[in-house]
């Protein structure tokens, strides 16, 4: 595992798309158990994620809008801790429900405990 660079505010693999966003997007895979810098804090990831997936930039309350690209992309269905994977298990659409294959969430995250 690479040294944590404390000079930077947020790990370079985590991309903030708009200042008002409460999620960041992984531009490279990040592993479970890895410690990353996120908004000036060091967070241990409970669930690794693949490229293109999202992490909570800060703690998000149940019922709070999820904001990406500076726009609302859904609503949190439970409290989401900082650094946690933000996806179909804790977010719902404000329009139509999302469909997914069984096990898709586990494949998207690198968390092998969830694999069927």
């Amino acid at each position: 595992m690479t040294e944590i660079d404390t000079r930077i505010d947020t790990d370079r693999r985590l991309l903030l798309l708009a200042p008002e966003d409460n999620v960041v997007v992984a531009r490279a895979p990040v592993a479970t158990g890895e410690k990353v810098r996120l908004e000036g804090r060091i967070v241990t990831l409970t669930s690794g994620i693949s490229m293109g997936h999202k992490l909570a930039r800060r703690p998000i309350a149940a019922g709070e809008p999820i904001v990406k690209y500076g726009a609302v992309i859904g609503t949190a269905t439970e409290a989401i801790p900082q650094g946690a994977h933000v996806h179909i298990h804790n977010v719902k659409s404000n329009y139509t429900a999302t469909i997914s294959l069984d096990g898709a969430e586990a494949e998207g995250s690198n968390d092998t405990r969830k694999r069927p």
Partner: peptide, 11 residues
Amino acid sequence: NAEGGLTTIEE
């Protein structure tokens, strides 16, 4: 789409 990290239709 979900497997690739997209969570909702609006996203």
